[in-house]
Simulated assay, not measured.
Amino acid sequence: MALHADARDWTLRTAHNRDEMWALADEEGIREARLAYPSGWLFLTRDAATRELVRLAAATGGEWGADELAHELDQSPESFERSLDDLVELAVFREEDGAYRPNSESVVAQTAERLRVTADEYGAEDGFRDIASPESVRLMLDALLSIDSDDELTQDDLHELVGLSRKSEWMHVERLTNLGVLVESGDSYVIDESSPVFGNVRALNAAVLGTALSP
């Protein structure tokens, strides 16, 4: 599959290259390193074009040409051509004779829809967008994917793990507590292991990696 390891200039993060990500973090900062070695979660939420295509595939059927998709998403075809190709490789869309159809059997799309539903149940206005759109939220979730569930995290810890400004993290960490992902513990936070929202973030991360790295 085209997304193996470093397709399209993306190197999906695995246990085999995690040390390379941290080495890059020492040189260029943790934010840049996470984006250069994205988890499955970050790969699927990396830009507006990819996120909107995932939402569309998870929510509806139908068949579109590239120009029709561009109109549906109010973007130029050039802005999401690469994202669409990647999502075809991940089996989120099927392509035949220039027409694109959401794949109803896609584990990635099905998990993205479950994430939207569970986030909506916790009061999100638009579950997938609320979690996937703000960069601070995306990167904090990415960091939490590799944290032990009993670790307590201060906002300074999150700053070191994510690399964004403390103000940006302060503004968005409340969203993760409202969604049931984090629970306050004194001046720190711990992951709520029973959180269905975070459970679906983990499942989505695994679905992308499993699909991308499968033979």
Rank of each mutant, 00 (worst) to 15 (best):
G61I: 08
N103F: 08
N178I: 07
S76F: 13
V108C: 04
S106P: 03
L44M: 06
L84R: 04
R82G: 11
P38H: 05
L209W: 06
F93H: 03
H4K: 11
G29I: 10
H4R: 12
R18A: 14
A5D: 08
A33V: 05
S104M: 06
S79G: 10
T111Y: 03
S149H: 11
L164A: 04
E27K: 15
A5L: 14
A206N: 10
R175E: 00
S194E: 11
E193P: 06
V137S: 08
A49T: 04
D6T: 14
Y37M: 05
L53W: 00
E125M: 10
W10Q: 05
L213H: 09
N17I: 03
V108P: 05
E89H: 09
L24R: 10
Q75C: 05
R55W: 01
S79I: 03
E52V: 00
S214W: 09
V201M: 05
L87Y: 01
A124Q: 05
E193H: 14
T211I: 07
N178E: 14
A119D: 07
T45S: 14
L12I: 14
A33E: 05
H16N: 06
M140Q: 08
G210C: 04
T11S: 12
A112K: 06
F128W: 10
V181Q: 01
L73K: 07
L209F: 07
V108Y: 02
E28M: 14
R116S: 12
Q75P: 07
A36K: 15
R8P: 03
A48I: 12
E193N: 13
A59R: 15
R46A: 13
P196V: 09
D26S: 12
D74I: 09
A132K: 01
P134G: 10
E125D: 11
A212R: 02
S79R: 15
S165L: 11
H4A: 12
D142I: 00
N17Y: 03
H16C: 00
T60I: 02
G98V: 05
S165D: 09
R51L: 15
A15V: 13
R166H: 11
W41N: 00
A206E: 13
T177F: 10
I147E: 09
D130P: 08
E72V: 11
G98F: 04
I30A: 05
R55F: 00
Q155R: 15
L182F: 09
V107E: 15
